[in-house]
Design a protein around this nucleic acid. Structure first.
Length: 448
RNA sequence: GACCCUAUGGUCUAGCGGUUAGGACACUGCCCUUUCACGGCGGUAGCUCGGGUUCGAUUCCCGAUAGGGUCGCCA
């Protein structure tokens, strides 16, 4: 039996949508599961709305997610190189194919000219769409289609339209399975009719459910979180996004959720795809992201963290590598999104701190001043400045003052980090070092 | 308006005629804890409704309702 050939065929008219990314993912999973071929084809027939930026985002987005394609463009250049035997993979480069096919339909009386456009003579009979997800769907004509079921395949400006080119390319690229959003389900009748007109058996279809907003409305490009770049630039990590996307409309069963892609590839198959739409739960994605971040290797965490800090204008290169690593070690497992890291760990890399007025007002109160002074003196007397020693010193000081450790901890934390929350106090003091720590406490003391 | 798909807690889901309807996120109580996070132990909350079929329906059938999709010289 022939190995499946599937494709992701986005149009570069807007930024890569999260739903499109999920469609790409399901195609990719099916190809990898079956040992088939994953084709990327760019459907750039809408000259007026296509943009180069959109093409680049599609390619970057798929790469970011790790969805490598076996055939398709090598770069975003439509006239550039491609890999695979069925190219070119930009529809704008395949016009001769379309023209020939249209001529064939015309000469056989299956299409006709109408007001400068060319229309396809659509069957008047109901079309049965065999779908691997929902089963056989018998599509009757709508009231408007009953009046005129024929549809335009070439515009009056000579440009072929989606229904036509999509079918021709799937046919000529030997696509065996069309896995696409459910929004195409009723249109598939047109495509099946077209395949038959070309004398070719249509591919197998699998229409996957849509991704909706939390309120159940359709996710459009305007919605926050609908665009892939939001995750690419938002400090998420791709394996978490991929894992979460797999859970929307598909289930590994067995109460499994977080699982390695490798395992998902083994389990994934078309018949188990759910039939109903799913709402996009940003909270759950955030949770999954946290799970993945916690398990990141030190090197990867370090790399992503440095990148996130640099993006926020914090140059870690100015500090010794050992210092940077030690600082980041105190943050690992504490922050879910890398974009939160600058706010969380920025104090390690800033010369002067900003204190939130509300926090300062609550913590830098007169009665805390002598306490913090005593603690500063205790710290100043230390010969070794490591976490264990600092903890002992702080607790002894607290005992001498007759207060709980927390009474000293909060002002100290705010004094040296500028934040009421952060990494383990003793460890961050150790990383910061005696000199900086004492200087910051001293400076804070002047603000009481 | 017509046509099509769908329906388990707020959300993602397991279930495929007989279950105390399971898990996860979120929410929440307690414990751990310097904060945050993690972890541990609890808790609130669900089969859209109405008819059938059946000894018995969350599960099968029909209808209603609701949500989504499509009816473009967009894709």
């Amino acid at each position: 039996m022939m190995k499946p050939r599937v494709r992701f065929a986005p149009s570069p008219t807007g930024f890569l949508h999260i739903g499109g990314a999920r469609t790409a993912l399901f195609n990719w999973l099916y190809a990898r599961h079956t040992g088939g071929t994953f084709v990327l084809r760019i459907e750039d027939t809408d000259v007026a709305r296509n943009t180069q930026a959109a093409v680049d985002v599609i390619l970057d987005g798929l790469r970011w997610l790790g969805l490598d394609w076996d055939e398709g463009p090598v770069s975003g250049d439509a006239t550039g190189a491609s890999k695979g035997d069925y190219g070119p993979y930009f529809q704008s480069q395949r016009k001769t194919n379309y023209r020939a096919r249209v001529e064939a339909l015309l000469s056989r009386g299956l299409a006709y000219e109408h007001e400068g456009a060319i229309k396809f003579k659509m069957t008047r009979e109901p079309v049965v769409i065999p779908d691997l997800v929902v089963g056989d769907v018998r599509r009757e004509l709508t009231d408007r289609e009953a009046i005129d079921p024929d549809f335009v395949i070439v515009r009056s400006d000579g440009e072929p339209v989606f229904h036509l080119v999509n079918v021709i390319d799937d046919l000529e690229m030997n696509i065996t399975h069309v896995i696409r959003g459910e929004d195409h389900l009723t249109n598939t009748a047109k495509h099946i009719a077209l395949f038959k007109a070309f004398g070719v058996e249509p591919p197998k279809y699998a229409h996957i459910p849509l991704i909706l907003n939390m309120d159940g409305s359709k996710m459009s490009k305007r919605d926050a979180g609908a665009i892939m770049t939001a995750y690419m630039d938002g400090g998420y990590i791709p394996e978490a996004v991929v894992n979460y996307l797999c859970l929307l409309g598909w289930s590994p069963k067995g109460n499994r959720e977080k699982m390695p892609l490798k395992e998902i590839v083994e389990l994934f198959d078309l018949p188990q795809i759910l039939r109903h739409n799913a709402r996009f739960d940003a909270e759950k994605l955030l949770w999954l992201t946290g799970e993945y971040v916690r398990e990141l290797s030190d090197d990867r965490f370090y790399e992503l963290a440095v990148h996130a800090l640099a993006k926020a204008g914090l140059d870690t290169n100015k500090f010794p590598t050992a210092y940077v690593k030690a600082a980041l070690d105190t943050c690992k497992g504490k922050v879910k999104l890398f974009n939160e890291l600058p706010a969380y760990a920025g104090f390690y890399f800033q010369d002067s701190l900003q204190y939130n007025p509300d926090d300062a007002k609550k913590v830098f109160i007169p009665e805390n001043k002598p306490r913090l002074e005593k603690l500063r003196d205790a710290f100043a007397a230390l010969n070794t400045f490591d976490a264990a020693t600092l903890e002992t010193a702080l607790k002894e000081t607290a005992q001498q003052l007759g207060v709980k450790a927390g009474v000293l901890i909060h002002p100290t934390r705010l004094a040296v980090t500028g934040n009421p929350h952060g990494p383990s106090l003793y460890h961050l003091l150790e990383v910061l070092g005696k000199e900086k720590s004492l200087a910051r406490i001293g400076k804070a003391l002047s603000m009481f």
